[in-house]
Simulated scan of single mutants.
Amino acid sequence: MMLVNGRQQDDVAALDRGLLYGDGLFETIRFVDGAAPLWTRHMQRLAQGCGRLRLPAPDAALLLREARAATQGMADAVLRITLTRGVGARGYATPAAPQPTRIVAAFAMPEVAVAAYRDGVRLHLCETRLAVQPLLAGIKHLNRLEQVLARAEWNDPAIAEGLLCDLHGNAISATAANLFAVIDGVPVTPRVDRCGVAGVLRAELLAVLPQAQVRDLPLAECLAAGELFLSSSVRGILPVQAVGDRVFAPGPVARTMQAHWRGLGFPMEQA
């Protein structure tokens, strides 16, 4: 089901600023049996993004009612909330009194192979680099062209994701997941205050990994790590099996975080 401003439909105005300029935000939320274990973290990030873009923040209670309506009858669903600045006059100037467009849409959870959780996934090392823009870093704004171009770099079904670096050669993330490396036994995740997205599962893992470091992660150091894994609020914890020719094995930190993911209430085959 798809709701636009609370009404069941699947189209928006041609002059919506989300369509014209990518002027808006989105959240992708996993629902299991009508519950979203990471809902509060998603709402916190959405509110932060609204503040950054100077968008009127939607009512979280209203969003939850619409989310439950959209996912009704779905045992395992992916819900996307899209918020745009709405329709405006031609040009970049923002409307004096914006009327945001709110889209709540539910989709069936895509299948993730059991082997991906058990054995890990292969990554393509992307040539596309993430540009530095601190104002937009961390939030899930609608402009995802960097990720689109990065994802277009491979079509091998054996490769599940791509590893993205910034312009300075630091590893940042996958195209649709955050990155963790374990270096000398210490979990490290790249800082995302200059580019990249501050994932809600990343935030959850940082809360339960007090020893974790958030810092620059040069690509060479990343590829020399003892273990790598991805975190995604939809797919959970995916160990990295290989980045190009560099081979890894699922490690104890990834396994512990997979157990934490299951403990939150998300289904996952035993790794």
Rank of each mutant, 00 (worst) to 15 (best):
R202C: 14
G236I: 05
R202H: 11
F229K: 08
L205D: 09
L205F: 15
S233R: 02
S231A: 10
V200C: 04
R235C: 03
L230T: 13
I237Y: 10
E221H: 09
L205N: 09
R235D: 08
V200M: 00
A203K: 03
L206P: 08
L201V: 09
E221T: 12
F229C: 04
E221P: 01
S233G: 06
V214M: 01
L238N: 06
E204H: 14
R202V: 14
V200A: 10
L219G: 06
E227S: 08
Q211K: 08
A220Q: 15
P218S: 03
L238W: 04
C222A: 15
P239Y: 10
V208T: 15
A207I: 12
A224M: 12
L201K: 09
R202L: 14
P218A: 08
L238C: 01
E227D: 02
A225N: 05
L228K: 02
A212Y: 04
L230N: 11
V214L: 01
Q213M: 09
Q211I: 09
L206E: 07
R235A: 10
R202W: 09
A203E: 14
R235T: 10
Q211M: 13
E227L: 09
F229G: 01
Q213A: 04
L206I: 13
E221M: 01
P239M: 10
L219W: 15
R215I: 05
P218I: 02
A207E: 15
L230V: 12
G226M: 08
L206T: 10
L205A: 15
V214Y: 07
Q211Y: 03
L209T: 05
R235I: 05
V208P: 03
R215K: 08
V214P: 04
A212L: 02
L223S: 10
P210V: 03
A207Y: 11
A212Q: 00
Q241A: 10
L209I: 04
A225G: 06
V234N: 08
D216V: 14
S233A: 14
L205V: 15
L228A: 04
C222M: 15
L206W: 13
C222S: 11
G226P: 11
G226A: 13
E204P: 03
V234Y: 00
S233T: 14
P218L: 04
A212V: 09
L223D: 06
E227K: 12
G226L: 07
Q213L: 13
L223K: 11
Q241V: 00
L238I: 00
V214I: 05
A212H: 01
A203L: 05
P218Y: 11
L201E: 05
L205P: 01
Q241I: 00
S231M: 05
Q211R: 14
Q213F: 02
P239C: 04
E204G: 06
V208H: 13
R235E: 02
A224F: 08
V240I: 09
L209N: 00
P218K: 07
L209H: 06
P210C: 00
R215F: 08
V200W: 07
I237N: 02
A212P: 00
R215A: 14
L201W: 11
F229N: 09
